[in-house]
């Protein structure tokens, strides 16, 4: 029961991007298209689940004083693995995400979950928490990517939505559009969460 709760909580109620406003760098940097957003979200989810698992499993072994360096080493290990695997099997995505693959290391969402949740909870719950938060992160990135792709190119996942007559809103493909799109989406999310009393 509580495992399910740990899983579902991260998707909407404690959504890393929309509610906690964490992990902004990759959120803004790689969401030019829905595809890149999805790829980044899933890569971060993989790292998050693995690091949560290992941190929870070792939570009674790692001394409190050096827990942060230990968490960082564990996270960096999984990030490097994801980096290598992407380069080997999904080279096109790897080239698109560029420097933001190694930078998953410093994504505050992952270190935050290791510190706040996985270091105090059993393995199963930690894995569920990782999946939930990861999916919420992926959802946020994919949505933002889809909105930006739709506005700047008239497509979502390369499928043409708005027809060939659409005059593209180019700025949403560039950095300023990322800030503005996320700002507007955050405001919308604030409004909706007040309406449905998520507080």
């Amino acid at each position: 029961m509580s495992v399910m709760k740990d899983l579902s909580r991260g998707i909407i109620r404690d959504n890393a991007v929309f509610r906690l406003v964490l992990g902004l760098c990759p959120t803004l940097a790689v969401t030019g298209t829905a595809e890149n957003g999805l790829g980044m979200g899933l890569s971060a989810t993989a790292v998050l689940v693995c690091s949560n698992l290992v941190v929870a499993a070792l939570r009674n072994v790692i001394p409190n004083k050096i827990r942060i360096p230990c968490f960082i080493v564990i996270i960096a290990t999984f990030v490097t693995m994801v980096d290598m695997l992407l380069n080997a099997f999904l080279p096109a995505l790897h080239a698109q995400l560029g420097i933001f693959v190694p930078l998953i290391v410093v994504n505050c969402v992952i270190l935050g979950r290791a510190e706040a949740f996985a270091s105090r909870n059993p393995v199963l719950n930690s894995a569920a928490d990782g999946i939930g938060i990861g999916l919420g992160f992926t959802l946020a990135l994919t949505t933002l990517g889809a909105v930006r792709e739709l506005l700047s190119k008239g497509t979502i996942f390369h499928a043409n939505i708005l027809g060939s007559g659409y005059q593209p809103f180019q700025v949403f493909g560039f950095p300023p559009g990322a800030f503005i799109a996320l700002g507007l989406m955050l405001a919308l999310f604030n409004m909706l969460s007040r309406k449905f009393r998520l507080e």
Binding site: I62, V73, I74, M81, M84, L85, N87, A88
Partner: peptide, 30 residues
Amino acid sequence: LGLILMLICAVAAGSLSYVNGITSAIIADR
């Protein structure tokens, strides 16, 4: 504390070099 940290680092480096061994061949091949 140093010993534990070193142990974790060693395990990390070991597993990375294992994955690197697998993927670097695939990357070079590609």
